[in-house]
Design a protein around this nucleic acid. Sequence first.
RNA 1: GCCGACGUAGCUCAAUCGGCAGAGCAACCGCCUUGUAAGUGGUAGGUUAUGGGUUCGAUUCCCAUCGUCGGCUCCA
Length: 594
Amino acid sequence: MAETEERYEDSKLYRIRHSAAHIMAQAVLEKFPEGKVAIGPAIEDGFYYDFDLPRPLSMEDLENIEKRMRAIIQSKVDFVCKEVSAEEAKKIFHDQPFKLELIAGLEEGNVDEDGNPISEKPKITLYSQGGFVDLCRGPHVANSAEINPQAIKLLSVAGAYWRGDEKRPMLQRIYGTAWNNPEELKDYLWRMEEAKKRDHRKLGQELDLFSVVDEIGAGLILWHPKGGKIRKIIENFWSEEHEANGYEFVYTPHIGKSKLWETSGHLGYYKENMYSPLDIEGQQYYLKPMNCPFHIHIYKNSIRSYREFPIRYAEEGTVYRYERSGVLHGLMRVRGFTQDDAHHFCRPDQMPDEIDFVLNFSLHILRSFGFSDIQAYLSTKPEKSVGDAEQWRAAEIALEDSLKRAKVSYKIDQGGGAFYGPKIDLKVNDAIGREWQLTTIQFDFTLPERFDLTFIGEDGQPHRPYMVHRALLGSMERFFGVLIEHYAGAFPVWLSPVQAALIPIADRHIDYAKQVAAKLRQSKLRVMVDDRSERMNAKIRDAQNQKIPYMLVIGDKEVENDQVALRLRNGENIGPIPLSAFIERANEDIQQKI
RNA sequence: GCCGACGUAGCUCAAUCGGCAGAGCAACCGCCUUGUAAGUGGUAGGUUAUGGGUUCGAUUCCCAUCGUCGGCUCCA
């Protein structure tokens, strides 16, 4: 981000949105005088306001509120700021319990009016417009005339806990958006539409990639043949790259005895995410939520020498985690998924090199899948953690140095580490600018201790190895979801489940089409012959909707000249070319991963 | 899990006030033999998510369960 760029909080748009939130609160309170208001900030792309109201709001309510907002805006009301004492504020908000709680917080000087912790004791300021007064730090527009009434829109109403705490009351949150002018609003709504179009759940159905069905269970994914083909391609690429980079492949079971999870600490720290145990001959077995304990036991199975290091065990390990029903989301958040997991073991002094390696390897793989915009996050020691502070600091420095060497832009997530060690997360920006977390590289100070891992050093004495967990794509499910949305289903040729559709114009061209298909398959291309008794136009339409990269139309001319007429999925009609020319072109695209 | 909206054919969606459950696409059987985004006729397809209740009668009203969606929370 360029330093010269204006901070969002200082922008006019921020003031417009924040002011729109207040105007919305005014409109809502006019409709529900007994309603209680909570907080209403500007957020990315819009604003919201939380209310405690006597009944649930409907879409019609939203339309009415929006209409009233426009009227208020057009009445050109001033936004007036006034500083008051806590006592005055309490008097004004005597019937607004949420505001009173915020005032109490301000008095104590530890949270601002949005409930966020702050260091300096703030002044209490009020902003009023029309008849509506709100506890607010501002800033706002000076007059509602600065807001374009045709550039606001209320979007949705949803539940939200007071102060984000699930033990506190559930409020109704109205989301809205506001822009400088109607064109910007239109543009924003178009972007929303675009995001909807590339929703992986919708495309998963339309392209026949995967499904989730009631009868099997929520958050459990069925990979259909086309989705499976893509996964297989990803896995093959993944395997080759790992093999070429010193990883060894391991396979481990899906369940393990309770003792294992006690030793690993999962039953202590992670139990709420694990499924109930299975009883087998009086022993309790748990479905694995992680692969680490298994990889560790492979390490432990023999005495290790420092000469073996670094050891890199990789596995496409399928794990099961209990996720609350409300958080499940397509492929992005599921209950059973396959991590592209790996564990690295090495001497402490090898760790910087090992981090360099895994970071660069990760960046290389992500870029291979077309993600060029990558942002790293370094998460440091949280309050609750194991290992001494010095150890943490050293590891954090090692990670940060590695980020610098890799020349990847990074941010620090203070206190965001796991309890067992600091980590680097890699997030990618997709084609429409949304950020997705994929890679996680995590130090572990606890498992080598818990499992008493050792290696024999040069001095002939046992030492404790360092251990790093790493999931590169994250999980196959999530990664697939991100790929679908990134490419809007139009996968690059090397990943496309069907790379070319052969389209014979009339039945008499089918034989030739099948011969061509056989030749293409020999060249390792994935093709299908559309031999339905349909018009060519319908076949093109279907291939186009399936986002197949190449369409090869075959009619009398092509049969006669031993050619194929190439059409691309972007609509471009290349026309007749020799089959060899097409194979060359396809292989080149595959090579370039486009 | 919580708040709200939902759940009808493989898919996308209709069905007035509680009164015979319907269309397009897809599938199947034909006809057409096609030159760059939907040719055409027909056939079949349903325990209206599941279980209970109210009612002469329930897709419709009520309750529970499961699931989906938008959020919240969570995300070792």
